[in-house]
């Protein structure tokens, strides 16, 4: 039974990372119609930046995190300005190919900057445990879950109450209408990219103690697709719930299914959802008008 709960918590923790990557991914998709196949790599860059600030430059942990996230916002905005905005109006395939090309580039960039090795990232939670009754949980896992909850609450407040958050929602809902009421759509898009990249950066730094910092950690980002689709592709709460479900299903597959299933559980789930309920758990289906 304990084993079950420990797997549940570690699965939820990993799921939180998926959820955050999926959240940024959905945020960007909803607002700008860009399906960012490089979002996992954006996350990887965030993790490496965290590593640079904390390990190489010896920043205190939290200051390092803040510095890395600040860099990520700039990075996200630059990506939008110089790579994605010129693509506006082009077909879905152009976007897919450009973001795939970007993912290759970012991996190449990271392996040049930081090398192909795997790096551990020491955190204030490393090698500590939380005891609840006779349950022994890794503090890192618990910290991830707590941080995710705080972050999601902050984002909720941001979208609900701040002017910028509401402008972002309006742009996602209807670009043209947002433009007509005086929202600077291009600038808001850049900010959404900045926000998405920042969240991915946080996810990358959170993932670092679990999977180490390395060039290929961006493949985790591919799990954001099943998470986003499960949640209805376009629904932000859906992306969060979807991410956590994927994380938990994977960790349960380790316990209860033959070896190998944990690697593909997310993708099996994706195929099943697409076949049975393509609109996801939270979405609605629409038909093109003629």
């Amino acid at each position: 039974m304990n084993e079950f709960f420990q797997q549940l918590i570690s699965g939820t923790a990993v799921g939180c990372v998926y959820a955050l990557v999926a959240l940024g991914f959905v945020l960007i998709y909803k607002a700008t119609d860009v399906v960012n196949f490089a979002h996992g790599e954006v996350m990887m860059i965030g993790a490496f930046l965290g590593l640079t600030f904390i390990d190489t430059l010896h920043f205190p942990y939290w200051l390092g995190v803040i510095a890395a996230v600040a860099c990520m916002t700039v990075f996200g905005a630059l990506l939008n300005r110089f790579l994605l905005r010129p693509l506006a109006g082009q077909g879905i395939l152009s976007v897919i190919v450009v973001t795939l090309g970007l993912s290759i580039l970012l991996r190449a960039f990271a392996s040049v900057m930081w090398g192909p090795e795997t790096f551990p990232l020491e955190t204030p939670f490393s090698r500590k445990v939380v005891r609840i009754a006779d349950l022994v949980l890794s503090q890192e896992h618990v910290a991830i879950i707590v941080l995710t909850v705080l972050l999601v609450a902050a984002l909720y407040a941001f979208f609900r109450y701040s002017r910028l958050g509401i402008a972002m929602q309006a742009t996602s809902e209807n670009q043209l209408a947002a433009y007509y009421v005086g929202i600077p759509v291009n600038r808001v898009h850049s900010m959404i990219w900045a926000l998405g990249a920042a969240i991915a950066g946080i996810a990358g730094i959170m993932l670092a103690p679990i999977s180490f910092v390395q060039v290929n950690m961006g493949y985790v980002g591919l799990k954001a697709f099943p998470a986003a689709v499960l949640g209805g592709f376009g629904s932000i709460p859906g992306a969060i719930v979807g991410g956590i479900i994927i994380g938990v299903v994977e960790s349960m597959a380790v316990l209860y299914l033959p070896e190998g299933f944990n690697n593909v559980a997310a993708y099996l789930l994706l195929l099943i959802v697409l076949m049975v309920r393509p609109q996801g758990l939270f979405g609605v289906q629409t038909k093109r008008r003629v």
Partner: peptide, 24 residues
Amino acid sequence: LPALRLKGIYLAMATLAFSFIVEE
């Protein structure tokens, strides 16, 4: 078969997922 109901990005993801599964 899923391609019948899926378009664009969904199909790209379904085929991507399929590719991972075959590899495994």
